[in-house]
Design a protein around this nucleic acid. Structure first.
Lengths: 323, 323
DNA sequence: CATTTGGATAGGCAAAGGCTATAGGTTGCA
DNA sequence: TGCAACCTATAGCCTTTGCCTATCCAAATG
């Protein structure tokens, strides 16, 4: 036997030695806990009131069972069984412990079940985060399918703006997946482009273009534009599209949201350039496709590469454009 | 490594070898359970999200912690932590397990507490069983004191008749202690005499003896007696007392209970011989002590020698005549 | 780029669980 | 009463396993 005492007599400071000494100390007077297998042994023995048969049921030998019961009793400081010759019965302490031990065993079972349900997508949580237009027009069909296939998973969708905030939410772990349009700063995030969302014009009924089904962006160089407030930036895809088409849009009116813009167009204040997915059919307006093929924004999904939950992994597979 | 396979190839019959083979089998593909100490490790690591610091708090080394977490993950079949370089976070499975693991740890704590409360008489149950007169007149002061000292213990008192039934209840474990008068068959029961309960006469007012405070049993040889039905047996202490005094009581009327006998005496049908403890003061009757010193019954408590609960042990100490 | 931080891995040791064999005490029956 | 069956406790041995130290490797930090 090693001589702990002398070692423990040494200084118990906070230097690296401190932790080691405290560990030694905790081994000298161990604060042991009962263990689940001991509770399982106890419950079986308590139900059968027969050590040998209980041991058989547990697939261990009778002495092993006796030993573990003895340890449990020693640790609790009270005998659990009366051993009167060949008859065995519970003491009051054993009687008190039995229901509690059974509860613990049930919960151990439940813990295992729940973890496996999470892994098997029978349970869990999926938290998504998307730009306003996307959660309304892009996600629903995928969400419907996911819900149908995994009805036990709780789904949470949050709308955030701008794309930067979405990326931050994903980075901070507040969302499993983020849906944005590119380009988007993605320091340390995985990005997968999903699809291309073409831009389209929206004009009020009665506007010269209203009868056409297609138009080119150049044609609208002289029009009055209703614009989304935050998109007045040459970095923004909509603004950049106009610049590419050779003009700077004359913005006569702004709104904070695509819905707002559409309302203003319906009121006749001007025309608008918006991504298709953000346009809702609205009386008093006409939607006109662009002939310019490369006028679009790319939608993408972001996620943290190493912390995907089972449900997020599955959703990602689900919205993969080429499965 | 031992060669299990060949051993398992042997017949798996029901002979004594059967159990041994099944045990071997269960060691080859062990149905292991998670253990409480592993859950404790997991909870600590999950709360701190830092293996080294958690290990320090648990007074173990960091590799030990990593190893046990790894085993837990292997057994559950799902990783519990994301280890992304030096940052640690919970997976969805870990997130799901955490509250369950915490509940199990709380209940382990509670199990220990409850057992110790039973042992410390802060909790538990005391079940007594007594002959009718005794539970009403002998036990109450002891019960009051026990209750005052151990208010957490649930007390249950049952009235049974005759003494034989009390002994059986104790023997069958339906009661911890039984209170009877001697003699009483006590196969395998411990008996401790408690006190001597002297017999006394009860006479109606106006009876020739009514004015006396003492009388001898012989004097009543010619009286009409009211008697307890089941006590008409030469074995019964009351009947035996009369026989010892040299006469056979002339029984003119019977009742099933001491109360009933007293009522009949009050009605003037005769006199009665009863143990003092069974006599309740009653208008229309007078109680007269016996001069014969050895006319009494001995009251005793019975219990099973080897299965005393903590509370029964304590109650026994409490009603010990010479503490 | 060097350093520090922090988890994983390797190898050795001691404790602990399990097993067989056996002792010791009841129970039940001849 | 004595013998046989039954059942739990103990002893001695073996295997497993939990824990330790030392070290490695990757990521973060300056």
């Amino acid at each position: 036997m090693y001589d702990w005492a002398s070692e423990l007599a040494a200084t118990n400071s906070d230097c690296p030695e401190g932790a080691r000494l405290r560990r030694l100390e905790s081994r000298v007077c161990p604060a042991k806990t009962m263990e689940i297998f001991q509770l399982k042994y106890f419950v079986t023995a308590a139900r059968l009131l027969h050590f040998s048969r209980a041991a058989e049921e547990l697939y261990i030998s009778q002495p092993s069972l006796s030993l573990q019961i003895g340890k449990l009793e020693a640790e609790l400081g009270a005998p659990l069984f009366h051993r009167q010759g060949r008859r065995v019965s519970l003491t009051d302490a054993g009687e008190a412990l039995l229901p509690l031990a059974e509860r613990i065993l049930e919960q151990e079972e439940e813990a295992r079940r729940v973890v496996q349900q999470v892994a098997g997508l029978e349970r869990g949580r999926l938290s998504l985060c998307a730009l306003p237009a996307l959660d309304q027009h892009l996600l629903p069909p995928w969400l419907a399918r996911f819900r149908r296939e995994h009805p036990g998973v709780e789904i949470r969708v949050r709308e955030l703006r701008p794309a930067r905030a979405v990326a931050q939410a994903v980075l901070a772990g507040r969302a499993d997946l983020g849906f944005v349009h590119l380009p988007c700063e993605h320091e340390g995030l995985e990005v997968r482009p999903l699809l291309q969302d073409p831009f389209a014009l929206v004009v009020p009924e009665g506007h010269p273009l209203a009868g056409r089904s297609q138009a080119s962006l150049e044609e609208t160089a002289g029009e009055d534009y209703v614009w989304v407030s935050e998109a007045q930036d040459s970095e923004h895809p909509l603004y950049a599209a106009c610049l590419r088409a050779g003009f700077t849009p004359r913005i006569v009116c702004q709104s904070g949201s695509a819905q707002g813009v559409l309302a203003l167009v319906a009121a006749g204040l001007g025309i608008a350039l918006l991504p298709r997915l953000a346009i809702e059919a609205r009386p008093g307006t006409r939607v006109i496709s662009l002939t310019d093929p490369e006028q679009f924004r790319t939608l993408a999904v972001l996620w943290q590469p190493d912390t995907l939950s089972h449900s997020a992994r599955r959703f990602l597979d689900l919205c993969d454009p080429d499965p």
